[in-house]
Amino acid sequence: MISLIGIAVFILLAPVIGGLIAGVDRRISARMQGRVGPPVLQPFYDVGKLFEKEITVANETQRFYAFSYFVFMIFTGALFFSGGNILLVIFALTLAQIFLVLGAYSAYSPYSHVGAERELIQIMAYEPMVILTAVGFYVVTKSFDVATIALFDQPLVLFLPGIFAGFIYILTIKLRKSPFDISTSHHAHQEIVKGVTTEFSGPTLGIIEVTHWYETVFLLGFVYLFFAFSPIIGIIAVILVYLLELVIDNASARVKWQFVMKSSWAIAAIVSVVNLAALYYLRMV
């Protein structure tokens, strides 16, 4: 089931697409705020710049964590786009995230430390919903394999409307968009400076940026699965979802972590119980 093409395409194209998405994102955000905004290629300039800088570290181990984060994020995405087991994909994603958190912890800096704690709270907040999304896929398609799920000939979103809504909710956390950008953000000035990434600098930070691109593409791939019955509708849906996230991002202010945690758990619990129970009921009838 493992398609090498999927892996190769992901590894080569994801950073390009991810970077472009980030560029368009900044551009559209700027327009929403009545500004001109940076060039679409700006994220690439940023990362290029970071790699031109001197290597500075808070400690020796930091680079290892950043690198591991990078490697496992690619692993996650590659596994996903090659049609692997979706639960395994989620576990690999968690592993990658944990490496980022550990990198932040290792720095012994108050800002990155608070960032790390909040990042963990974020993970705790979105993790159940991600797993339950996979479970939802399974209940409908009888398979955990992305390849099989993607080939399902009916629109999954019709079977899983609640789970889809819940997933969109936590997608805001995953994309680090306001109001849920509690652990680090794309924007300037946050009460905890840059949270988890505070202590990463130069090329190490560059690696983390690229990793974010990979992650964005992977997450949008997840969204696509809901609409995979028709590629065109799927891509349109992904674009619409991203635009929706942008509007949310620009229209809301950051909330406290307590709210992030409570609301995402409440939503995950409600939508999954209702949606899954309905599916079980339908199947029994």
Binding site: I98, L102, S106, L120, V135, A268
Partner: peptide, 27 residues
């Protein structure tokens, strides 16, 4: 599915307390 939901939430909790401990060790 009830058990799966409980498991999903429970594992998120385990993740939190293990990871913060791990972080503390690796400072």
């Amino acid at each position: 599915f009830i058990f799966v939901i409980i498991l999903a939430f429970g594992s998120a909790l385990t993740l939190f307390f293990w990871a913060k401990w791990l972080g503390r060790l690796l400072v």
